[in-house]
Amino acid sequence: MKGKKIFIHPETAALKPLTFNTEICDGCNMCVEVCQVDLLVPHPNKGKPPVVVYPGECWYGGCCVAICPKPGAIKLNTPLMNRVHWKEKT
């Protein structure tokens, strides 16, 4: 198996857990390194935001966002079905 190249196709999941702002993110990959599920990989082009390869595996704990040194570079998207209702007290 040595030397063999393999390729991955980022999965399309029912949900999109993360959005990156390509203007702010500098591709430092700290979010890749902190993710306990390891669902992100570094972008093949250095300096670009990581690639979400296995979006369905996200735990939605937000450690990737918490560690990011560039505010606004990465956003955790609450699954639509999990949006909670609140209202103003009258």
């Binding site: 198996m1 040595k2 393999i6 390729f7 980022p10 990156f20 390509t22 203007e23 935001p49 690639v51």
Partner: peptide
């Protein structure tokens, strides 16, 4: 905000199945 999609990429880590 731009999409950061990437169609197909090479496995980014060295493969050491034989080690």
């Amino acid at each position: 905000m731009k999409d950061n999609s990437c169609q197909c990429l090479e496995w980014p880590y060295p493969l050491l199945y034989d080690k």
